[in-house]
């Protein structure tokens, strides 16, 4: 059975399906022929050496890059290029490798921005403070406050984000991504630059997000310990190709993955004859 058929068979149930996806920058193939299906409620890690195409994959799914070939299925609908301005409506939220926070805004405002898409009231209704717009805003405030509480950020709600430590900023970004109750959450290196304690805390948060929101989570991560402990399945990219996809145990035993990470022992093989 071809990969396309596999995708077609599961597209209804999958939270995210990627079908023969290719993307190149100039002559460099960032992604070539990727097929990937993520089941609802799954925590899926994407790993691979630097430059393997992990961030490109997430950028395609969140609409920042337009792929050369292939399609992305989100919630039973397929896109040649995911429309960025409809991401929130599709129930997709993400965080960025290099934080995309508003440093001059308070923690609360940064999180509340994540709800901006949901506003139905028009510009004038908001300015005039019509009852519908006011109710919407009150609900948004309440929701943002609840999420701040969940991430232990309530004490810092009025601090400017630029004044906070890197680890806390990462938590603020996660809070913003979660506030609109996404069905699919894309995390680009959520643990990068964190201390061991912060990593442990964040691992707990990610599990809790999955359990409480019944969200599907796709995360790029370099810390193999975290990946193996946290994810249900692991996809491995190398030079833009998918070289492994399976449970953490299966990936640990996958020879292609070991080769990609440690390098193939050509010298030893050559030396065997001696």
């Amino acid at each position: 059975m071809s990969a396309t058929l596999v995708v077609a068979a599961v597209e209804d149930r999958a939270a995210l399906a990627i079908e023969s996806l290719s993307l190149s920058f100039g002559g460099v193939m960032a992604l070539s022929g990727i097929d990937l299906t993520v089941a609802p409620g799954e925590i899926r890690a994407v790993i691979g050496p630097n430059g393997a195409g992990k961030s490109s994959l997430i950028n395609v799914v969140s609409g920042l890059y337009r792929p050369d070939h292939g399609r992305v299925w989100l919630g039973g609908r397929s896109f040649a290029a995911v429309p960025t301005d409809r991401l929130a409506a599709l129930g997709v939220a993400r965080t960025f490798q290099n934080l995309a926070l508003f440093k001059g805004l308070s923690v609360l405002d940064n999180v509340a921005v994540g709800l901006n898409h949901g506003f139905r009231a028009g510009v004038f209704a908001q300015i005039a403070g019509l009852p519908g717009a006011r109710r919407e805003r009150a609900a948004a405030q309440e929701r943002a406050a609840a999420v701040l509480d969940f991430f232990h950020l309530t004490d810092m709600r009025d601090r400017l984000v630029g004044t906070l430590s890197y680890g806390v900023q990462k938590r603020v970004e996660l809070a913003r991504a979660v506030v609109a109750r996404p069905r699919l959450l894309l995390l680009d290196e959520p643990m990068a630059g964190m201390t061991l304690t912060e990593k442990r805390e964040l691992t707990g948060f990610i599990r809790a997000i999955r359990d409480e929101l019944q969200a599907t989570i796709v995360l790029i991560e370099h810390d193999i310990g975290v990946v193996m402990g946290l994810s249900d399945r692991v996809a491995v990219l190398d030079y833009g190709r998918l070289i492994g996809d399976g449970t953490p145990e299966a990936i640990r035993a996958n020879q292609a993955v070991i080769d990609a990470y440690l390098g193939v022992a050509h010298d030893l093989e050559a030396g065997e004859g001696i």
């Binding site: 508003f102 001059g104 805004l105 405002d109 509340a112 921005v113 709800l115 901006n116 506003f119 009231a121 510009v123 908001q126 300015i127 403070g129 717009a133 919407e136 805003r137 948004a140």
Partner: peptide
């Protein structure tokens, strides 16, 4: 300060 659009503007 108090509208969603205003928050978007500040962002």
């Amino acid at each position: 300060r108090y509208t969603g659009i205003g928050l978007g503007f500040r962002a």
